[in-house]
Nucleic acid binder design. Structure first.
Length: 355
DNA sequence: TAACCGTGGAT
DNA sequence: TATCCAAGGTT
């Protein structure tokens, strides 16, 4: 069979399947509506970077209700956006989200660029997101390659070069099956397929709309694609955080530096995180340490965080910059998950002593 | 280029 | 319990 014709068949088969089985997602235009809102497409794509659909759902609802347009988001306070993002992870995304919204509002008249190149120049918009927004929101033909597409394409063509070295070949193959029309639907169909059928483990090849086109299905183990390089072991690190509570029911919170881990987020005052962290408290007080450290796993290391608790006088003021945050509103402080769990542990320990 | 950057669910 | 993994971008 003619090779080009066979490649066209892949897109046709996939789009026919998508027309029946597309997932209904809040950021997708309803069936029959062609134009998705670029703001919502962009917002969803940024939230979905390395993040599951299930995790994004409530955050997308919260953001679009509070900031319905890019102009509204551009006018938001930094602290409000960072707090609203708390718990979703990869906080550089939130910082870039605001920078991008302000760039669109201030430099582009509140209208998103409608080309891949224009989108690519925005903060936090890389090759994938630019292609996805251009295709989904603006109907451009763009080659959209995320981890789902990498997996589906590696299997379709049985590409056995290990990632990341296989990326150029995967991109070429993805370009070869991307249709001129409905490139946005095609991209979303590929991602739906990767998320629901062509899954990393135990793919449902028996119900796959592309099973007649798949080279990996002819091998002993289709799930072996894509081949990946071995991962490095995560080092274990230690750390200390200090819970400083006043008799009026407030706790001392600081803000972490703008860049780096948990950058720009509210936090408990903390040591460095290393093999031998500096355990010197930020102020002299009668400290008690929680027996059980908070265990937390980051992308490239795991952490055992010892939480120290002190009750200090009303006029006490720690040396570094920060704010006395009311305990009754601790949920609105926007603490990232590590510190939310440390706060939970400290408050639970306090309740044990009170009762 | 490869390291850095979160979190939670699935297995 | 340990490991893998997710609609990646930045430096």
């Amino acid at each position: 069979m003619d090779v080009e014709r066979n490649l066209m068949k892949i897109a046709a088969d996939l789009l026919a399947h998508y027309d029946v089985h597309a997932r209904r997602l809040p950021w997708r235009a309803p069936p029959g509506v062609n134009a998705a809102d670029p703001y919502r497409v962009w917002l969803s794509e940024v939230m979905l970077q390395q993040t599951t659909v299930a995790a994004v759902g409530p955050y997308f609802a919260k953001f679009t209700e509070r900031w319905p347009t890019v102009e509204a988001l551009a006018a938001a306070e930094d602290a409000d956006v960072m707090a609203a993002w708390a718990g979703l992870g990869y906080y550089a995304r939130a910082r870039n989200l605001l920078a991008c919204a302000r760039a669109v509002a201030n430099d582009h008249g509140g209208v998103f660029p409608d080309t891949e190149g224009g989108l690519r120049s925005l903060p936090g918009v890389g090759a994938y997101t630019a292609a996805a927004v251009a295709a989904i929101a603006f109907g451009r033909r763009a080659v959209v390659v995320d981890a789902n597409v990498e997996r589906v394409v590696a299997r379709l063509f049985a590409i056995d070069t290990p990632l990341p070295a296989a990326r150029p070949a995967i991109r070429v193959a993805a370009n070869g099956i991307t249709p001129d029309a409905r490139a946005g639907d095609f991209a979303q169909a590929m991602m739906d397929l990767g998320a629901t059928i062509c899954t990393p483990r135990n793919p449902a090849c028996g119900i796959c709309p592309l099973r007649s086109d798949c080279a990996a299905l002819l091998t002993a183990d289709p799930a072996a694609f894509p081949v990946k390089a071995a991962k490095k072991a995560k080092p274990h690190r230690l750390g200390h955080s200090w819970w400083i509570e006043r008799p009026d029911g407030r706790v001392w919170l600081v803000r972490r530096p703008a860049k780096g881990l948990l950058g720009g987020m509210r936090a408990l005052p903390s040591s460095d995180w290393s093999a031998a962290p500096d355990a010197t408290p930020p102020l002299a007080a009668d400290w008690t340490s929680l027996a059980e450290p908070v265990a937390h796993v980051f992308t490239h290391f795991s952490l055992a965080l010892t939480v120290h608790v002190a009750h200090v006088a009303e006029d006490s003021m720690p040396p570094e910059e920060g704010e006395w945050w009311p305990l009754a509103q601790i949920g609105e402080a926007g603490l990232p998950t590590l510190f939310r769990r440390a706060a939970d542990a400290a408050m639970k320990e306090r309740d044990v002593h009170v009762h």
